[in-house]
Nucleic acid binder design. Structure first.
Lengths: 147, 147
DNA sequence: ATAAGATGTAATAATCAATATTACATCAAT
DNA sequence: ATTGATGTAATATTGATTATTACATCTTAT
């Protein structure tokens, strides 16, 4: 199974806030239009990003702002905020290996450290990319458009 | 979403072949017992591993054998064989970003290379672990048991 | 004060992949 | 031919994702 599109949606949302936040009020309806995703889904993601302290959402008046310098928000922060994997575990382990089989009752001992090793490599790479990278490339591609 | 348990199941299957293959015939029913997973699911995974050239399955008589030296079969080979992610893409991208929005029509330009970078880190780590590691640790944990 | 426009969230449905299960055709060795 | 196994189709169940409707609540402007 793939990692939920909540992740790419969240990055898209940040790119919109970067690009339009100074000119327009960035509402869930606006973001729903840009992403082509239902506004309630957008609001759920905004709620998760708010819960992680990455953005603020104005009640009543509406609109979204980022709470930190962009180079201090990593892909890993976003990935964790929107709960891309259950229980923080990238790999789904079969639930009940047999305790009657020597391999079955040891498979977690054998495998768990290696799964964590792989997961850590993923997380390390996610942590190396920040929203400053997104802002830089967004500005580049948008300015290329107007040539 | 998590990566399908087909991956941990496949590694469990190899650990069983390593451990029991010289003494018993390793059938899908035997593997179903050790993993506590339905034999038809096991047969589907065996079919995928066979399709990738990693094992041979004896028709009629039954039983499974590995086709290569264990240090030449990596976790990445297994991961690819059992199709853990759709289309080979780790991240699910929202399907139809708006072409009317400058961010929407550029979000793939902005994001795709970064998603590939993260996916490559995962795959590199998967490629660094082989079934020889599994065999070594399986033997260690099983011999620890009998002390 | 209240109307307007926005968020927060519950409830429900639709879709899709994963996994379980039954059934049976087919194969290979005895 | 019988036995025990694989290969696979068909169907059901479960669970997460995503869409959608509805509405309570909040803030600002009038």
């Amino acid at each position: 199974m793939q990692i939920s599109s909540r992740f790419t949606l969240a990055v898209h949302i940040f790119a919109c806030i970067d690009t339009f936040g100074s000119k327009y009020k960035v509402t869930s309806d606006f973001l729903a239009g840009s992403t082509n995703v239902n506004p309630v889904i957008i609001r759920k993601i905004l709620g998760q990003l708010k819960g992680a302290g990455l953005i603020e959402v104005a009640r009543g008046t509406g609109g979204t702002t980022v709470t930190k310098p962009l180079d201090e928000i990593t892909f890993l922060d976003i990935y964790n905020a929107v709960e891309c994997v259950e229980n923080g575990e990238l790999f789904h382990f079969h639930e009940n290996p047999s305790t009657n089989c020597p391999v079955g009752r040891n498979i977690h001992h054998i495998l768990d450290d290696k799964l964590i090793q792989v997961q850590s490599a993923l997380e390390k790479e996610l942590a190396s990319i920040t929203l400053a990278d997104i802002k830089r490339d967004t500005e580049r591609y948008l300015s290329d458009e107007s040539i």
